[in-house]
C-alpha cells in the first residue's frame, strides 16, 4: 500500500521556494555552499544550486558527503552501510554550509553529517535543508528549510524517488510490511 505525497510539480515548486529562502536568510550567496548527504541529498543539493543560480546568477559550490563512518548504529544494523565517496573539493573552514537531505526523521543522520563536516574543517555555520520532514525526532535537531512537513506513523516509510536515480520525480508514503 502506498500513497503519493508529492509529484514532480510539487517537488519543483518546493525546491524553488527553498532556494529563495536560502538566499533570503543568508542575504545572498556570499560564503555559501551546499553539501548533499549521500545519496538523495546529493541530487537535491545540485537542483537547489541550479535554482539559486537562476535567481542570483552565481555558482555556489556543491559537495557530497558520505556519513557511513559516523553513524551511531553500526552495531545494530543488519549490514554495514555501503560506503560512497565524500567529494568536497573546497575548504569548508569559514563557509556557511547548507546540509541537504531528502528526508528528516530521527535526526541521527544529521548528527553524523555534522560530525563528518566538522572533521573536514571549521565552517562558520551549518544550516539544514530537507525536502520532507516526517517528524519523530530522537535528537534536538531542526531543519532551517523544509519542502513539506508530513505527519507519519512509525509503521510507515517515506520514499523520495528522483529522476537522477531512474525514477519519475515523486514522494510516496508506504506502510512497512511485517517482516516474515
Amino acid at each position: 500500500m502506498s500513497k503519493e505525497l508529492m509529484n514532480k510539480k510539487d517537488i519543483d515548486r518546493a525546491l524553488t521556494r527553498m532556494a529563495h529562502e536560502i538566499i533570503e536568510k543568508n542575504k545572498g550567496t556570499g560564503n555559501l555552499c551546499l553539501v548533499g548527504i549521500q545519496r538523495g541529498g546529493v541530487y537535491l543539493a545540485k537542483r537547489l544550486a541550479s535554482n539559486i543560480k537562476q535567481t542570483e546568477k552565481k555558482d555556489i559550490p556543491v559537495g557530497s558527503l558520505d556519513i557511513a563512518f559516523y553513524r551511531d548504529d553500526l552495531n545494530i544494523r543488519k549490514e554495514q552501510p555501503v560506503v560512497r565517496r565524500t567529494e568536497i573539493s573546497f575548504e569548508v573552514t569559514n563557509l556557511k554550509i547548507i546540509l541537504v537531505d531528502d528526508v528528516l526523521f530521527t535526526g541521527r543522520s544529521i548528527r553524523a553529517a555534522m560530525d563528518a563536516v566538522m572533521d573536514l574543517g571549521r565552517p562558520s555555520a551549518i544550516q539544514l535543508s530537507v525536502l520532507i520532514d516526517r517528524g519523530h525526532r530522537e535528537l534536538p535537531i531542526k531543519a532551517d528549510y523544509v519542502g513539506k512537513n508530513i505527519p507519519t506513523a512509525l509503521t510507515e516509510t517515506v520514499e523520495v524517488q528522483l529522476e537522477e536515480e531512474g525514477f519519475e520525480d515523486r514522494v510516496i508514503l508506504k506502510k512497512i510490511e511485517d517482516e516474515k
Binding site: 557511513a68 559516523y70 560506503v83 565517496r85 574543517g121
Partner: peptide
Amino acid sequence: LDTAGGFKDVIGRDIKKVPAL
C-alpha cells in the same frame, strides 16, 4: 576495494580518523 576508496579519502585529510569502530 570500493569501500577502501572511501577510506583512502579519509587518510588523505588533515583529520585522518573516523569514529566508525
